[in-house]
């Protein structure tokens, strides 16, 4: 079974519906013991890193997530779900899961015309092949909503880049974990393609 991790962080049913559209039946799950038996996990999230981490820990989902990732289960982090997979977030100075080395920092611009959050459609430029990015072409755009962005410590963990005044990593991955800063569930056909790729992914890159 595919589980969508429920830690009170956003619109899980949007993710569930988009999965269904590509034929992936996914259940929303807040129970760490059930999560440990997952064949596939989607770790979505919208909101603040601090309260999200508290909620994960309260439910015991943090350990369960680490276990499934260590067991090689394919995991897709989306937006806050990606950010929490790094080691630290500047948002409320929060220690996060540390599944991928690096940190999450706030966009800072002097130009008033650059709005924060980074909200809307922007190009996602794959820099390396990955099964989840199969069929994603340069120029394809995805939907973003975020005020903080991931800074992985190692460039080998970066799979796609996006420009918002400066370049940032919009897709990162390590072994059986893959994370997108954008929302594939709200990104039309290309987003569904990525979810479809995830539905068939065995966790190897």
């Amino acid at each position: 079974m595919t589980f969508i991790v429920d830690y009170d962080a956003g619109n899980l049913r949007s993710v569930q519906r988009a999965c269904l559209e590509v034929g992936l039946q996914a259940q929303i799950c807040a129970d760490p013991d059930r999560l440990r038996r997952a064949e596939r996990v989607i770790f979505p999230g919208v909101g603040a890193a601090g309260s999200a981490m508290r909620s994960l820990i309260e439910r015991g989902l943090d350990d369960a997530l680490r276990e499934v990732i260590n067991a090689g289960v394919p995991v897709l982090g989306i937006c806050l779900g990606l950010q929490i997979s790094l080691a630290h977030s500047e948002e409320s100075d929060t220690q996060t899961l540390g599944l991928v080395a690096g940190e999450v920092v706030r966009f800072r611009f002097d130009q008033p015309e650059l709005k924060i959050p980074h909200m809307g459609w922007n190009e996602v430029r794959p820099v390396k092949a990955h099964p989840l990015l199969a069929g994603i072409e340069p120029g394809d755009e995805f939907y973003f909503v975020h005020g903080y962005y991931p800074k992985p410590a190692h460039t080998e963990d970066v799979f796609a880049l996006t420009d918002y005044e400066h370049e940032f990593a919009s897709a990162i991955g390590r072994d059986n974990y893959f994370g997108t800063q954008f929302h594939p569930e709200k990104s039309g056909r290309v987003g569904l393609r990525l979810l479809n790729n995830f539905a068939g992914w065995n966790g190897q890159c």
Binding site: R13, R17, K186, S187, R189, G191, L192
Partner: peptide, 8 residues
């Protein structure tokens, strides 16, 4: 609509 339209 949300089950058929995958944009915001």
């Amino acid at each position: 609509v949300a089950s058929q339209v995958f944009i915001p």
